[in-house]
Simulated scan of single mutants.
Amino acid sequence: MFIACFEVVWLCRLLVEIGFPQSTSTPLHADNTSAIQIATNPVYHERTKHIEVDCHYIREAVDKGRITLPHVSSDLQIADVFTKSMPRQRHQFLVGKLMHLDPPASI
């Protein structure tokens, strides 16, 4: 989540520099509800003392309105097609969500 957040913030700054400011925050979809709660809740808990700079960076981006963290169900997490093994039907469903098209056949 940290790397994706870093890339979103960098791209937003780049767009501002070239004259295309962003009027709304960018949604960064996550399926980990605990990570979303930790990033959006500034209250310190004993169980979260091991969290380092990564979480603070995401929390700062959320506070400044650069990103939002909407929850996406694990069943609809498209990134799983790249990271997990799964049955063929599930794999085809997620690949369909990517809207990947076969290249046209050469003549």
Rank of each mutant, 00 (worst) to 15 (best):
A61G: 03
T33F: 00
H91P: 02
H100F: 13
H45C: 13
K84R: 12
T26E: 00
E17P: 02
L98M: 15
H100D: 09
K49P: 00
D54G: 14
M99E: 15
N32T: 00
I3K: 10
L69R: 02
I58D: 02
D54R: 15
Y57I: 13
V72K: 01
L101D: 05
F2D: 13
D75L: 04
E60T: 11
F2L: 13
K49M: 07
H71K: 10
S23N: 06
I51W: 02
P21F: 05
E17V: 06
W10L: 09
E52K: 14
I107A: 14
V95F: 02
I38H: 04
P21D: 07
V16N: 05
R88E: 07
R66P: 00
L76Q: 06
F6K: 11
N41V: 12
P103D: 12
C55K: 11
F20N: 05
L28P: 01
C55M: 13
P27V: 08
R66I: 15
T83R: 11
A105R: 14
K97E: 13
T83M: 08
V16T: 08
G96V: 08
V72C: 09
R66H: 14
H91L: 15
R59I: 04
L11C: 06
R47C: 12
L101N: 01
T33A: 10
G19M: 12
A35Q: 04
L11N: 03
E60Y: 07
I36Q: 04
L98P: 09
V8G: 07
L69I: 03
L69Y: 01
Y44P: 09
V16S: 08
K49T: 10
L94F: 07
P87C: 15
E46S: 12
S85D: 09
H50C: 11
P27D: 12
I67H: 02
L28E: 01
F2S: 10
K84F: 10
I18Y: 06
R59N: 05
L98C: 15
P42E: 08
H29S: 04
I78Q: 07
Y44N: 13
T40M: 05
I36L: 10
F6N: 05
T26I: 10
